[in-house]
Amino acid sequence: MSLNKAVLDIRNRQRVKPSPIDVPAATWTGKDVIESGEIDTITIIFKTSGCWWGKAGGCTMCGYVYDSAQDVPSDDDLMAQLEKAMRKASDFDRFMVKIFTSGSFLDTKEIPIEVRHRILEELDGDERIVKVLAETRPEFVTEENVKDCVSVLKNTDFEVAMGLETSSDVIRKQSINKGFTFQSFVDAAIAARENGATVKSYLMLKPLFLSEKEALEDIVQTVRDAAEYTDTFSINLCNVQRGTYVEYLWDRKQYRPPWLWSIVDILQRTKKEFPDMIITSDPVGAGSKRGPHNCRECSHAVADAIRLFSLTQDLSCFEHLSCGCKDLWEQVLELEDHTFGSPILD
């Protein structure tokens, strides 16, 4: 059985509850950092027909595929989702919009080109919006598509966000099952930047099968490899999402999410190496069994430091962190390299 088949089998076993298709999958506000500093953000997860790659199996850790609509949403449904989402931004003076589709915003099978135009036009028309970020797989980041977006967003910056995950083609293929190569990311990044967009790269800390140290070093290496093609890094910490292959293995005690000490180490090392690069990480689910975690006592404090660093880019955030469990993490770093196929669990 191939990895993709294994992922697909699990997908097929999930029961997804139907939900209204004129409401976005999720919307929330938050803060992010752009070149000019901290800024309010609104994140919209569009409910589309879904990620083409996810429908064919998809990534081992991705549970977002279940956010897609059961029926194909009409153009008006999609616009209604936008409208409902934007209500949350009513209090903002100046903000950034982050668009996700649980797939690719630039895939016209998910967002028809007319809808794309209507969305971007509407956002461009709102003067409070200074930047629009849209996530997409790299195969859709063509010269044509970037130009198309930039041309609509006359007064608004445009950022293309891609889930590179890792610069290792071996890991991306055999652990994540992501279905593209580092080269395709590079091509996409160049296409974006040469046509007026900036690039944000999402990385994935600790995909399946890797030891804690391998995972850690892989991200450090990835930052080195991808730095010249990206404007911002956002490092995702693998968490165990429902209906994923990661969950399947986690349930069977064959996976442990990353330690927060690992991301702290990564942020410290990469920021020192690339002081001008914006490198962020949002420790979603930190401290829970399914999320990245240290011990019970320090997880929340460490996660807060990571969030603060992500906004301030100030390494002093990490200065006073310490906990007895750091010693354990150091052991895990050393020993998990030699467990030959079983994780070190808590």
């Binding site: 059985m1 099968f209 069977r252 064959q254 196929g341």
Partner: peptide, 17 residues
């Protein structure tokens, strides 16, 4: 040198590696 997977990883991926 070895490229380990955990036991419930797909068998023929494991064998290939």
């Amino acid at each position: 040198p070895h490229q380990d997977l955990t036991p419930e990883a797909p068998r023929n991926v494991t064998i290939k590696l």
